[in-house]
Every structure is written in structure tokens, then in C-alpha cells.
Write a protein that binds this DNA or RNA. Structure first.
Lengths: 421, 421
DNA sequence: ACAGTTTCCCGTAAATGC
DNA sequence: TGCATTTACGGGAAACTG
């Protein structure tokens, strides 16, 4: 009868940060003219948790009871918005750490909404509650929290299984890959294509990824570090999403960032392309980095590949990426510096691809010489060539991407119209 | 009998920001063995303001009463530290805006400390209060608040004249210049020399500054904008102080920044110096900017002066200033780029002055080409020469700087040992 | 409309807890 | 001790409020 929604962090519903306002909206879906103006809704945080499941406890700071209004927009239903802060109670000592293995971003909570009223002598109690929530205390926990929200909503239809992460189910790669692509289309405006998803699948699962029914465990997705790296798969992918969102949006949306290509595949692609052909790829070794790799040919006709040290958010906020591509120069032993980047793979002239995005040099301040920052690499004789490439990967299951992603969108939309409302 | 101290913002005592912790320390200067462990001190914010003077009201969030302890360090006196937040009360409507002309950073407040005890049947009430305080709500108000604190403590010995800014006295330039130099020595580690102070005096007062007994009004110091500029003298100077503190500390402390030189004086100094002689100067037209000006000679032997667009904090956080000096290049019409900076005025070879501060290029990440940012100016044919220089200014009163500044330091020290304690 | 002021809250750094 | 988590608060931006 009621339909609870619960927006929080912009674009990341079902995550609440302590000390930060959030809003909830409850709608009464049936119309009861008699009770229009007397219906009050009370919100409670973690109203009745299963007794064993006491980890952190929070409370709502502001007044938690509010009268419903007739919704201006739609069908004349009642609705109410809450807007309050959440503060942590001090631990009830002793009860802490029921499982010990679960991190705070795996700890699920809920908001309950109650209303009591009387129609024609009949006392009616209504109660509903939100989908499981994650409570964080710092934005640095947002990626972890969002991983939990995604995993939960991808893999269960239960409205309130707060113990979900006690034994989380696995996802098939085909399920997961759709969600990942949907993440990119939601947050960066363009989803992932088949090749990009294939590379991600291989990174996560090895070669058999392409079969689609391969299973991914929750720890592998978000808890365990990628072998040899100090971060998990999702942390890595989310750092890229953030990099795109803050520094690469137009380039990403124009589809100029191949992004997810293995170093081997990169060479296969660039080999035999025109000298100065380059492609853009995200760093696999560092969080939130992007680099370009270009091909050149030696005197003997042998292909040589070079990549710059990946650019991260700090560099990119000093200098927009398109300008980096425009101005980048390599200087080898006193020769005239030259920009080695000529064609975006496969063969788009650099300026044709990025010209629209170049920033005109700053407006000159009258008596001053304006100075721009130019990214320069110094090339010392010959760079050691890396081993020859591996075989390209088999093709991936063609996605029913559109269908699935629509389902997901609907799902998430319903549960949470964001902040703006 | 008691000596109240009141640290707040690191290094900027007597300024309290709402919602941020601050500490106060009260000491009982006489030793009263009988009451050692029963003495409680109560802190009150704005305990008894003159009735007309009701602007903003605040209250202390935490428990405002605390027992004094025997001070571990010194003479066995009692002391107590408070550590609490200050939150604004909603305005008592109607009583707002008694003068209207005063800004929030001119609104003075105070903390009162009370203690009551009984010795040998004699009831004793002690009370003391802090020097006037400024309450701000955002760090962007810190410069304005600090100006008030400086002006007050420079120009009055009254312990609690909360209406001070209703009719603030003027300062003589000799008083003010000592305080300014003291600011630089406190916050940047090196004070201002006579030439620098002369230039500042001229900027503020015109040519007669050098007489020292010239008067500076409070509005001229901190409230009114410099003619033709959108900021006041103090805002401008404080922005430079911040720039030094965050980005130029070693360069400033090595005395390599002349800093305050008029454009005219600059030319007088550089003229007839070796080609490539440069000096470092703060921007007068923008907040928190530093530029270098160098001299070169045309084919006809005529001196040509160039300055870069001033570097501000955003640029300097992308690239440290010493590296900018090392790497800066001018490229004119396809010629090989060259660094025009050779000798720091008067004739110190660049690398001798700054070599110690150069950052070695980042550690190479194995397979990547590391890229550095190089600041480059493009020189298009000939830059228009600015009009010939004006006459140099008369010499300034030799400061009794050391004596005076020691007085000042003591003064401020007593009133406020910072945060750390 | 607007300027002075406050609130909001991200993101880094430091503190704290386990 | 080290890692997980929270607190602290500067700083930019938005919201407020006369």
C-alpha cells in the first residue's frame, strides 16, 4: 500500500552517510479521503533487527514524525518527505562484532515507516520499510557501499534480507557485466561495449569469461584484492568511473577512450597502423589513471610502442586531458620536441577527434606573458620492448544488454528518485 | 589572579569558528592548597554584553564546567582546559543589526570564566574573561577576523572593549609596518625588510609613507578596496602570506623573493643587469599570485622586460615554484625553446639559488615514459614596452623592528599559546 | 538583485578503535 | 602493531536572508 523510496547520496541511493542529510519519501498508494489531513508517518531506523544482528546503531536526529500531504503532481495520493541526519550511537559494549568478517559496508540496515489511523471506526495500522541500506561515515566508503547495494539488488528480490552478506550468492558474469555497463551509462553517460566487457571479464575470471554463465563471487568482485594489486576489482573499476566523471566526460561520451584493453591486445591493434596512431587506456596497475600508447616505426621498420605514465586526477585537474593530447611532446636528446600523437586508433586525425575539446589558451592578462603547462617526456635512446603479445580472446556472448539494463534501471529508479525531488 | 588564554585556529588565536573545536586554558596564579581539588571553573560565552550590543548569539555545546588540575609543568598552579564547540543561536528577531555598519568579523565577543570557593569560612568569587574574540562561520572569514584581532591588540590595551570597532582608532605606519613584518616572520618564517615595507607603505599611503608617523585608518587597512581593485590592502597581503605558507616557504626563507617591488622599481633594478637577470614579485592585481620578471637586451642594446602571468595556488600545486623556474621556457616562432631565467637579481646563478629546491623528476614507473609539466610561454614578435620608470622612492625610517617586534610577540604569546598544548 | 553570511559536504589527513 | 573505521576540518560552492 505504501511505496517507500529513499534517495541519499546524489545518484547513489540506499547509502546514508552519518552527519549528512538525506531524504526519504513515502507514498500512500490508495486514496482515503477521510484521513487526508490527519495521517502522520513515523520513521524509525533499524526498528526490529534480528537480535543476533546488532552491529552499529544509529538514530535519526530530526523530528521523525510528519504529516502526509496530498501529492501535488500525481493522482492525489498522500506523500511525505523526511530529511534528517543520522548519528551513530556509541556501541553497546559487548554486543559488537557478531560475525567479525563483515565490513561496515556489508552491514545492512533499514528505515521503517509507520502510520496509524481510523476509518469508520476501524483502526488501521500501516507499516512498510525501505530496501536494505548501507551506512557510511566518510565518502571514501562510498565505493564499497555501492558495491553492496548493487550486489544485493542484482541478486535478490527479497525486500529486506539484512543478513544477505552473511552468505552472499554469486553472480553470473552475464548478470554482472550488464550491471557494470549500466554503471557506466548511468554515471558517465555511455555504457561499455562488448570488447570492453570482454576485457573486464578476463581480468576478473580469466579466459572463460566469455561463456557468460561463469560465476563471480562477492569477495572476488569487491572484497579480495586483484592478485598482485592492492585493490579489488570493483575499487579499481569505480576509480575509473570517478576519473571519467570528473575529468574525461566528453572524451568518454564521444567514445574515444577504448579504456579496457590489455597491453597485449593494444599492441595487436596498433601494430601496422600508421606511425603516430595511439589509443587511450586505463591504468591497470594504479587506481584512476589513464594513459595513451602510440606506435612508431624504427629505421628497420620495426614497430615501437610507448606509453606515458598514467595521468591521475591530480594531474588532470591541472591540465585537461584533451589539452594534454594536443600539447604532449617527446624530446629525445636535444632534437626538436615533437608530439608523437597523430591518429586516434584506428585512423582519426587527432585534431578531428579532440579539437572540439581543446581549451583555448587562457585570456592574456595585458602586460604578462601567458604560460601554459606542456607535458613533456624525455626519451633516452631506446625503450626496452615488452614481450610479444598473447592471442586475442574469443568473442563474448552478445548482450541482451538493452533489455536487461532497462529492467535494472526500472528497478533502481523505483527504489530511489534522487536528491532533486 | 587568573590568566586566561584562548587558542583557537592554529596560529590565529582569538578567532573561533562555529562548529569547530577550540580550547581555552585558565590558570590560577596564586596557590591555595586548601582548595586544590574542589575548584570548578565555569565558562560562559558573552556573559554580560552591553545591552545595545546584541548581534549574533552563540552558545557552548559541551559541558561548560570543569575542575581545575594542578598543572604538571610549572609552579603547582591550578589550570583547566576547555574544549568545546560554538553554535549559533537563531537571531532574537528584531534585536539584529544594532549598528548595521559592522561586519561579523568586527563583532567582538568574549568568554568569561568563573570560580567560587571558600577558604577559612571566607567565600571568594573569582571571575576573569578573555580578550575580545571574533566568531566566524567559514575559514574564508579568517583573514577579516585576523585583521580585527591584530588591529585591536595593536591599538588598545583595554582588556575588553567590545565596541572597539564602533569607532576604531588609526594606526601609525610605523606601528602597522612592524605588525606586518611580524606577520611574515610568524607565518612564513622571515619578516619584511626595509625596502619591502617601503613599497607596502607607498601602496597603502602614497609617497609620504616613509615618514612613519603617517596614519592608517581601519577601513583603509582592511575594509575598503584598494582603488581599482576588488580587494582591500589586508586581503591582498594575507593572500600573499597564504601563498608563501603553502607554496613558497623555502624560497621565501632563503630571501629569494623580493616580492614587494613596484613595476617601476623593478625596471630600475633590472636595467643594466646581465641578460637573463630576473626577480620574483607578487602580483598586485590578483590575489595570491607570484611572477618573475627578467631583462634581456635587443640587438640595439635596448633593455626588454618580460613577466609571466602570475602563478597562483592552483598552478603551484600542480608544479612547485622552483621547478617552474628551472623548467620555464620561452618559445618564439619555432626557435629552440630556451629558458630566459639565468641570474636571480642581483647576480646569483639560478641553479645556485634554487638548485637545492628542485624536485627530481618522479620515480619512473617501469614500462611508462614519465612526463613532466613544463611551463612554456609563446612569444609573438615584440612585446609592447611599458612606459619608462618613475623615480625611486625616498628611504624609510630605519625600524626599531627588533625591539618592537619582540614586544609584540610577547604580547601575543601571552594571550594565546596555540592548539598544541 | 545582490552581497554578506552561513550551511553543506566532499575529500584529505589525523585520530581512534579493535 | 596494523588495519578498519571514524572524526576533524579546510575549502569551494550553494543556500540562505535580510
Amino acid at each position: 500500500e505504501k511505496q517507500p523510496c529513499m534517495p541519499t547520496h546524489p545518484q547513489k541511493p540506499l547509502i546514508i552517510k552519518t552527519g549528512v542529510q538525506f531524504t526519504t519519501k513515502v507514498r500512500l498508494l490508495v486514496k482515503l479521503p477521510e484521513v487526508d489531513y490527519q495521517l502522520k508517518v513515523k520513521t524509525t531506523f533499524d526498528k526490529d533487527l534480528p537480535p543476533g544482528r546488532v552491529n552499529r546503531q544509529f538514530f535519526i536526529l530530526t523530528n521523525n514524525t510528519k504529516a502526509m500531504d496530498i501529492e501535488d503532481s500525481s493522482n492525489g495520493c498522500l506523500s511525505v518527505e523526511f530529511r534528517h541526519l543520522l548519528k551513530e550511537k556509541k556501541y553497546i559494549s559487548g554486543t559488537k562484532g557478531n560475525e567479525g568478517l563483515l565490513s561496515v559496508t556489508e552491514e545492512l540496515h533499514s528505515l521503517s515507516f509507520e502510520a496509524h489511523f481510523v476509518v469508520q471506526g476501524l483502526a488501521i495500522d500501516l507499516e512498510t520499510c525501505s530496501l536494505p541500506l548501507v551506512v557510511i561515515s566518510n565518502v571514501c566508503q562510498l565505493p564499497g557501499g555501492w558495491a553492496s547495494v548493487m550486489w544485493y539488488n542484482l541478486l535478490t528480490d527479497e525486500p529486506r534480507n539484512l543478513g544477505f552478506f552473511g552468505n552472499p550468492p554469486r553472480a553470473t558474469w552475464s548478470q554482472l557485466s550488464e550491471v557494470l555497463s549500466w554503471q557506466f551509462s548511468t554515471f558517465a553517460g555511455r555504457g561499455l561495449d562488448r570488447e570492453q566487457l570482454t576485457m573486464l571479464g578476463e581480468k576478473l575470471l580469466g579466459q572463460e569469461a566469455s561463456y557468460g554463465d561463469c560465476q563471480v563471487s562477492w569477495p572476488k568482485f569487491s572484497k579480495e584484492n586483484i592478485p598482485g594489486k592492492p585493490f579489488s576489482f570493483w575499487m579499481w573499476l569505480d576509480s575509473i568511473l570517478e576519473l571519467i566523471r570528473k575529468h574525461l566526460l566528453p572524451v568518454w561520451n564521444d567514445n574515444y577512450i577504448m579504456g579496457f584493453v590489455s597491453k597485449e591486445m593494444e599492441r595487436v591493434l596498433l601494430k601496422d597502423r600508421g606511425s603516430g596512431t595511439f589509443l587511450l587506456r586505463f591504468s591497470e596497475s594504479h587506481l584512476g589513471g589513464i594513459t595513451f600508447t602510440w606506435v612508431e616505426y624504427g629505421d628497420n621498420g620495426e614497430a615501437k610502442f610507448n606509453s606515458v605514465e598514467p595521468y591521475t586526477k591530480s594531474r588532470l585537474s591541472a591540465l585537461p586531458f584533451a589539452d594534454i593530447i594536443r600539447d604532449y611532446k617527446v624530446i629525445s636528446d636535444g632534437v626538436v620536441p615533437e608530439n608523437p600523437l597523430k591518429f586516434l586508433y584506428p585512423d582519426i586525425p587527432k585534431d578531428e577527434a579532440f579539437g572540439r575539446l581543446y581549451n583555448s589558451p587562457q585570456n592574456k592578462v595585458a602586460p604578462y606573458l601567458s604560460a601554459s603547462l606542456i607535458p613533456i617526456s624525455e626519451l633516452r635512446s631506446n625503450i626496452d620492448a615488452t614481450p610479444p603479445c598473447q592471442s586475442p580472446e574469443p568473442p563474448m556472448t552478445p548482450g541482451q544488454f538493452h533489455m536487461l539494463s532497462q529492467d535494472l534501471c526500472l528497478d533502481f529508479d523505483t527504489m530511489s528518485p534522487p536528491y532533486s525531488e
